[in-house]
Nucleic acid binder design. Sequence first.
DNA 1: CACTTGACCTGTCCGC
DNA 2: TGCGGACAGGTCAAGT
Length: 299
Amino acid sequence: MPELPEVETIKIGLQGLLPDKKITKVSYDHAKSFPNSWEDVQRYMVGATVTNVSRRGKTLSIELDSGYTLLIHLKMTGQLVFRSNHSSFGAGHPTDSLVNKLPDKSTRVIINLKQSGDHSTLFFNDQRKFGWIRLMHTPRVQEDSFIQKLGPEPLETTFSVDKFIAQLQKRIGSSIKAALLDQSIVAGIGNIYADESLWSAKIHPSSKVKEISQADLKNLHKELIRILKLSIVKGGSTDKNYINVEGKKGSYLSFAEVFRREGQPCRRCGSLIVKIRVAGRGTHICPTCQKLPRRGPNK
DNA sequence: CACTTGACCTGTCCGC
DNA sequence: TGCGGACAGGTCAAGT
């Protein structure tokens, strides 16, 4: 579910909430959502204080002063929601807020926190159970195979056009959509931002990487960065499940040009947006703006 | 080897 | 209203 802008929004939220809070209790049952042993959780997590929160691609890290780190991937339906139990702590939440309904049947992990007398709770909810939290020794996070495979961060200044094009050479025969979704090419792009950036750059998602001109790839690089930044400003995209740490939805989708806009007019040319299937994923395009490079229909 | 397709889960929506 | 099937933003193993 969450892609880079959503995870970044969550990271920013947690950065303002978690550091200096001490973990007092951890409740969990589903082994796949949180595979660490009860003993390890007691030893390295309970009693530890949060020192930092960071993001790499779609992965979040919550660093603890015990020398351990919680590595978190939300996959499709994961949510991290924070609730302060201290009544004078801000205005609180509306009574019908999702925040007040937690825990619920999708809650996989509950982390209780404390800071100078103020109690709070971080809920990890995940309807489809694809997401995970892993407690690991901090020095080993960088060597973790999942983290190691990740490509460059698209919002870092070192992510140049040349870097982007060089990365894409690794998937030269794939469709550009499959290449964008490959986390080892560029970290953090998912279905929404792949579709949106390809529309902006007027590239058909089924185009093979090798068929796309340098000029178009250069443009795609620019549009991708622009869109990711814009989405972060808008608090990310909420299609069905995504909410931030306060339980609030993101607003980027109201700015989306193609994603979930099938049947509606393209804002550039007026043609109706259609939904097709590329790289096994639902894919939204403007059939007029995004033409396949020469040769007939795709596949 | 390069690339594509299911499987992992649960919930929802759509057509009959 | 009920039921079957398709589909959902991610990733990896298995398949071509």
